[in-house]
Design a protein around this nucleic acid. Structure first.
Lengths: 258, 258
DNA sequence: ACATTTTTTGACGCTTCGTCATATTATCGC
DNA sequence: GCGATAATATGACGAAGCGTCAAAAAATGT
């Protein structure tokens, strides 16, 4: 439960020592991420991390109160990256609907490049795991989640304000964000677990996700409707305008695999 | 890895011994479910289960090759219950859209009554957990999943056949089923993990889920559109026509809690 | 140069999983 | 019924991993 170092880092004036510690935080997280990536979650143990960073286990525990705490920190890094991507998407020049769609594409893309990030999120959503994460880390996570929701919500509200998304009797902004969040999150997990979706007759998840998002937004009458749009062109334009970097990484990955 | 008894049960002629063993299977699962329900997943250990059923640990391992295998079996039971509910929903008299909506309501309802079932599903979707489940059990699970998807898919195809759901250039039946599956599954997990959705400004998940499903189906132009329907009345009618039993259980649960 | 505080270390205790040699029970031929 | 053989049950045990803490080492202050 105790984790003396972590608390120090969060103070305002970053002394040399504090910087060093923050740096080691990252070092440890990098090592963990590596192990996770190369060998999978079952192989991730505190002893192995300690060995990888060449510090003792005790020192690791000065940075992270538990293994779960560490995985949660990895998730925080992921969400931070997502916040970056979402922010870019939210400022994309184009219709409000394009901006919102861009967020979805970003989410898909990020998790294609970092499949193991998805696993981590999945893991820390389990209550039995959550109860082992420190209060502070959970609070940090919640804050980040709040921020990322805010970004999506903001685009929806812009759409309502400019009339591209009709106001209804019930407040819908939250429902739309929640709907997409759950849809993308659910698809991610289903895609990521070894269930052979293709054997069950499904197309690639990303493709269905794109179609479903458009239909979902159509259902809310978010203009312009997908029937008035060349969706494939829109997808490609957004991707190349916003996410060239991610596409490059993805291609590199695919080359490596083959 | 070995689990001699389990294999015997699956043979065709059910002798007295085999019936006894199948019964003990259930006994163990019930005990596990109980512990899970009362004390949570972290408290679920093989020793405790053994103690609860008054058999030794070795005997438990004759029935289930691992703890994860057992949780997966619990999930199989859940999916079987869901298949029952879905089948009822698929035969509901009413429009195809009502039948499909009824499936969604069933899913929501089931997991409201059995929140811990959701946790189990969540857990066995994690790859690090999956790799500890026996091949046979995973195959069983996949078969059940296939059957349940089939039910939903069938309703969609009926809708296409009778013209209530317009055919499009791309095949959409799978996308619709996958879209709902991921949306419900994702919402379930988000709702179930201790994230305070309400603090983030969200309404109850079930409510949003219902709205979002309707909008989603509207997007696909599945007739009759929700704008031409009294959705609340429809929700209530389906619930009382099909799920009185579940509603009763839910009310009992609520009474207990207060 | 010494004292005090901070940080690091890894051996240790504890929990849990899953196994396997042994004990117990059931089955069957006679 | 009875002894032999097969099937099943048992729980002590080894292995692995988490998290702790007293003691060692390093840093800091005087």
């Amino acid at each position: 439960m105790k984790c003396p170092i972590a608390k120090m880092i969060s103070s305002i004036a970053p002394s040399r020592k504090q910087r060093e510690l923050a740096q080691r935080d990252e070092l440890i997280l990098d090592a963990a991420q590596n192990i996770l990536h190369e060998q999978g979650y079952s192989y991730l143990t505190m002893d192995r991390i300690a060995e990888a960073v060449e510090y003792s286990k005790g020192t690791i525990y000065n940075h992270f109160s538990s293994k779960e705490d560490m995985v949660c920190s990895l998730c925080c890094r992921s969400v931070n990256s997502l916040i970056d991507m979402f922010s870019r998407a939210a400022e994309y020049e184009g219709s409000s609907r394009e901006r919102f769609s861009a967020i979805g594409i970003g989410y898909s893309l990020y998790h294609q490049v970092h499949p193991m990030a998805a696993q981590n999120v999945q893991i820390i959503k389990i209550n039995a795991v959550r109860e082992k994460i420190s209060e502070e880390k959970l609070a940090e996570m919640e804050l980040l989640e709040q921020r990322i929701i805010e970004i999506a919500l903001h685009v929806v509200n812009e759409a309502i304000d400019c009339g591209e998304l009709p106001k209804e009797t019930t407040p819908i902004a939250n429902s739309i964000v929640f709907g997409c969040w759950s849809m993308y999150f659910g698809a991610l997990i289903l895609e990521n677990s070894d269930i052979p979706l293709e054997d069950l007759g499904f197309s690639p998840a990303v493709q269905m996700l794109w179609l479903n998002t458009q239909k979902f937004l159509d259902g809310y009458n978010w203009l312009p409707l997908s029937s008035d749009t060349d969706n494939e062109a829109m997808f490609n334009k957004i991707t190349s305008d916003l996410y060239t970097h991610e596409i490059e990484l993805l291609n590199k990955k695919r080359k490596k695999q083959s």
